[in-house]
Write a protein that binds this DNA or RNA. Sequence first.
DNA 1: ATAGATGTGGGGAAGAGTGGGGAGAAATGT
DNA 2: ACATTTCTCCCCACTCTTCCCCACATCTAT
Lengths: 138, 138
Amino acid sequence: MTGVYRHSIDAKGRLAIPSRIREELGEVFYVTISQERCLAAYSAESWDRMMEKIKAMPRVKQTKMRPLFAHAAKCELDSQGRILLPQALRDFAGLTRDVAVVGAGECAEFWDEAAWDAVDVVETTPENIAEVLQELDF
Amino acid sequence: MTGVYRHSIDAKGRLAIPSRIREELGEVFYVTISQERCLAAYSAESWDRMMEKIKAMPRVKQTKMRPLFAHAAKCELDSQGRILLPQALRDFAGLTRDVAVVGAGECAEFWDEAAWDAVDVVETTPENIAEVLQELDF
DNA sequence: ATAGATGTGGGGAAGAGTGGGGAGAAATGT
DNA sequence: ACATTTCTCCCCACTCTTCCCCACATCTAT
């Protein structure tokens, strides 16, 4: 999943998913919290793989995974290609109106637009890109 | 099973099961005590799998599993999608009125709302989430 | 310019959560 | 055994949320 798409949440709490992202996420997908102040959306297949991995863990570790599930939502696209984002998730990521939907490889991230711009400016410097490419060694 | 749903037990001791959770638990499911101060609800299929696992154990271990059964209740949804939670179970988890129904992957957990908030604040910190995601390595 | 796809907004029907009345079953006391 | 109380569960009613549908603006590609 690639690209940055600037969309807005309407008065009913609905967020339109960019069609390019929609193609990869599918009709039903999962949105959960991320380690940063944003949300992460995983396709159903991707989510199921995650589940399998967790089921294979010992009980104690499974319990530790709870926040991931507790703060996740199974989202289904409405007929206009939008999802209804639960209030709790919107609050977590500080999403009010303007949202940046960011392709992040395996998942898509939902950022508050201003927060995304701040992150983007910092991490998209020539030096950083150079470092990334070097690390990749491709 | 995902998400947190805040519901309340009415004067008759009935608890409405969130529809998203209902879809996964089915019409009839099992509620038992958990290792924490909360209850855990398993779908019939999930419960049966647990049973199979226990049957395969040596007799002595089976006996150790007794508390799990002794404090379990087979719950059926009424026509409004609610269950009647036995008093003993409510007491165990300290459920009075406000309940948080928490999706925890394989099962759903029933917490006293205040107790859940306390747990949630502690385990949903950036450091903790980062640790979880790292452990998951996804 | 025109057609098709995409993003945004709002009306209205359907569903979900809550509360209460009341019939029937189960437990209790006489 | 009978009457009384308690418990369980069905139905109905109300509110609020969710979701389906239609309309319109914008953009892209032909």
